[in-house]
Design a protein around this nucleic acid. Structure first.
Lengths: 183, 183
DNA sequence: TATTGTTATACTCTATAACTATA
DNA sequence: TATAGTTATAGAGTATAACAATA
C-alpha cells in the first residue's frame, strides 16, 4: 500500500488521458465512429468471437456493444453468424472490407502516435505497454459493479464482479453512493 | 522510431483505459458528474486560475469548460471572481465546500485504486505516473488540432514532464481527417 | 427459470457556431 | 478587429430497463 498521493496522481492521469483518446478519435473518418473502430480493432486482434466476449473486452454493457456491432454490420464491416453451439449466441467475424478499414484506421492512429512519441525508445515503449497492460489487468472487468443498492445502505453482499474479466475480479467497487442529498 | 506494432499497442491501451476511467467515475455521487469532479480536482491541485487555463488543463473546448464550471458554481463548489487584470476574464476559486467535496471524492477514488493496485510497489507506481506524465506531455494540448500541420513534434518534448499539468500547448495534432470520402 | 442479445429511453460529455462584453 | 467567456444546438457513448428467443 502506497501513499494516497500516488493513487491520486494515477487517478488524475487516467482521467486526463481521455483527452489523448479523443485526439486519437479525431484521426478517424466521419463514417467510422470511435465505437465501431474499437469493435473492429478487437475483432482484428482476437478473431471471431461472441457478443458477450466482445462486450467484456470493450468493458461496456452488452446493450452498447449491440449498437456498435449493428452499426458496423450495416456498413458491411463484420458479419453476425449463427453460433452452432448455442442458438442464442451470434459469432462476429470481420469481413474483408472491415479488415481493410481497420488497417487504414490503424495507419492514421499510428502515424499520430509515432509523431508524438518519436522520442521514446523501444524499451521505453515496451515498459509503457507493459505497465498499462498490468494496470488494466489489475482493474479487471470494469463493467457495472453489481452491488445494486435498492435504497438504504445495503453494502456487504455484492460479490458480483467479474466472472468474466481478463482475470479474476477484484473486490466489488464502492457502492454507487446512496444518493446523498447534501450540497 | 519504433515498430508500428508498438504504437498500435499504445493506442489500444489508451482506448481501453476509458473503461477504467468510467469505473472511477462510478465512485462519484450522483450530484457530482465527472466533469465537475475533474474541474474541482484541477483547481484543488493548481489553485486559482482563469477559464482558458482550466480549459487547457482539461483538454476540452472552452464552451464545455464553461458548462462544467457553471454547474460547479451553481452547487457552490467554486466562485467566479472578476479578474482585476482583464475585465473579460474570470478567476476561478474553490470554495471551502468545494474543497471538502473534492476531498471526499478523492477518498472514494483512492480507495478503489488502492484496492485494485494493492500489489504495486511505490517504485512501480512512480514509474507508472512518470510515464503517463511524459505520455501526456508529449501529446501536448489535445484540443482542436487546427487545419494546418506544422510538421514534426516540437523538438524538446521528451523530458519527464512532471505531474498533472498538461504543460504549455504543444504543436497541433494531425489534420482533422480532411473528410476522406472513402470507406 | 436463466441466459444471450436487441431495442427504447435517458443522461453525460464534447464540439461547432453564434453572441456579449471587454481589450 | 481580436479575445474571454457564454449559450444553443447537435452528435457520440454509455447505462438501465423491458423484451425476444433459446437453453
Amino acid at each position: 500500500m502506497a501513499a494516497q498521493s500516488r493513487y491520486v496522481e494515477v487517478a488524475q492521469h487516467i482521467t486526463a488521458l481521455g483527452a489523448v483518446k479523443r485526439a486519437l478519435t479525431r484521426t478517424l473518418p466521419a463514417e467510422c465512429p470511435s465505437g465501431s473502430a474499437h469493435v473492429l480493432s478487437l475483432l482484428n486482434a482476437h478473431g471471431e468471437m461472441r457478443m458477450s466476449r466482445l462486450s467484456e473486452l470493450l468493458g461496456i454493457d452488452t446493450s452498447v456493444t449491440s449498437r456498435h456491432v449493428a452499426h458496423a454490420a450495416q456498413r458491411g464491416w463484420l458479419e453476425r453468424l449463427p453460433d452452432p453451439a448455442d442458438g442464442r449466441s451470434r459469432l462476429l467475424r470481420l469481413t474483408p472490407a472491415g479488415r481493410d478499414l481497420i488497417d487504414s484506421l490503424g495507419d492514421r492512429a499510428v502515424a499520430m502516435i509515432a509523431r508524438k512519441l518519436a522520442d521514446w525508445s523501444d524499451a521505453e515503449l515496451d515498459a509503457l505497454t507493459t505497465m498499462l497492460g498490468r494496470l488494466r489487468a489489475d482493474f479487471g472487468d470494469c463493467r457495472i459493479p453489481g452491488p445494486r443498492d435498492d435504497g438504504p445502505p445495503a453494502p456487504g453482499s455484492s460479490g458480483t464482479a467479474g466472472s468474466t474479466g481478463a482475470h479474476e475480479a477484484a473486490g466489488p467497487l464502492l457502492p454507487r453512493t446512496p444518493t446523498p442529498s447534501h450540497a
